[in-house]
């Protein structure tokens, strides 16, 4: 199981928990598992998220490996100027 930290406003979609656990070994599995376990997250997942894995930010790389002890943080999709 991987622990995933979600930002505060998403806690409404995760039964008021800011840290949830899902089974995943890659970024794609993580996002799929979150959507399946917490359907209320889907609107935000559809709008786009970035995921910080051990402090590095990933946007799209489905097959980025995630270890059980990785620090995983869901972020709003980063876009810049």
């Amino acid at each position: 199981m991987v622990k995933v930290r979600v930002w505060g406003s998403l806690a409404a979609a995760t039964e008021d928990r800011t840290e949830v656990e899902v089974d995943a070994t890659t970024l794609r599995e993580l996002l799929d598992a979150l959507a399946a376990r917490y359907p209320a997250l889907r609107p935000q997942l559809d709008r786009g998220v970035s995921v910080a894995i051990d402090g590095k930010v990933y946007n799209d790389s489905w097959f980025q490996p995630i270890r059980e002890d990785s620090e995983v943080v869901l972020l709003a999709r980063l876009k810049g100027g």
């Binding site: 930290r5 930002w7 910080a52 051990d54 402090g55 590095k56 930010v57 620090e71 943080v73 869901l74 972020l75």
Partner: peptide, 10 residues
């Protein structure tokens, strides 16, 4: 440090 937006800084 755990940043206010969630990540732990390298």
């Amino acid at each position: 440090t755990r940043a206010s937006y969630g990540v732990t800084y390298p």
